[in-house]
């Protein structure tokens, strides 16, 4: 990863367009950052398992969660009425590209 072809492929997967003249620079900078990331290769402390995710999410009790009631989140007051105008719409539908 870091050749121009790699970058193009990754752009495709990430649904990004990078102009041709920027591909080379992008590839170079991506390579630099991966160089920084490869620092972690030196981190070889014995007792960890890369097949688990040991993230720092907090834990909450199920009782702390929202009850299944209407208007529990969006209090029905005039000021807070949800007024959203989509970019392109037709008869209430939002217009999307072909699939």
């Amino acid at each position: 990863m870091s050749t121009e072809d790699d970058v193009k492929k990754l752009c495709d997967l990430s649904k990004l367009e990078i102009p041709d003249e920027m591909i080379m620079e992008t590839a170079k900078k991506v390579k630099d950052v991966l160089g920084l990331f490869s620092k972690l290769d030196e981190f070889t402390n014995s007792d960890f398992d890369l097949n688990t995710v040991n993230d720092l999410r907090i834990e909450k009790s199920i009782d702390s969660l929202r009850a299944d009631t209407l208007f529990s989140v969006h209090v029905d007051n005039k000021d807070n009425k949800f007024d959203f105008k989509p970019l392109n719409s037709k008869n209430g539908f939002i217009i999307g590209p072909r699939i």
Binding site: I62, R66, D68, G92
Partner: peptide, 26 residues
């Protein structure tokens, strides 16, 4: 419902909205 009538910032994924988990769904 009329199209897109039953939506809010959360289920439309508007920027900044966060998921608020429904206890009874669990």
């Amino acid at each position: 419902h009329l199209p897109n009538e039953n939506t809010c910032p959360i289920c439309l994924g508007l920027p900044g909205s966060l998921p608020l988990l429904n206890k009874r769904a669990i």
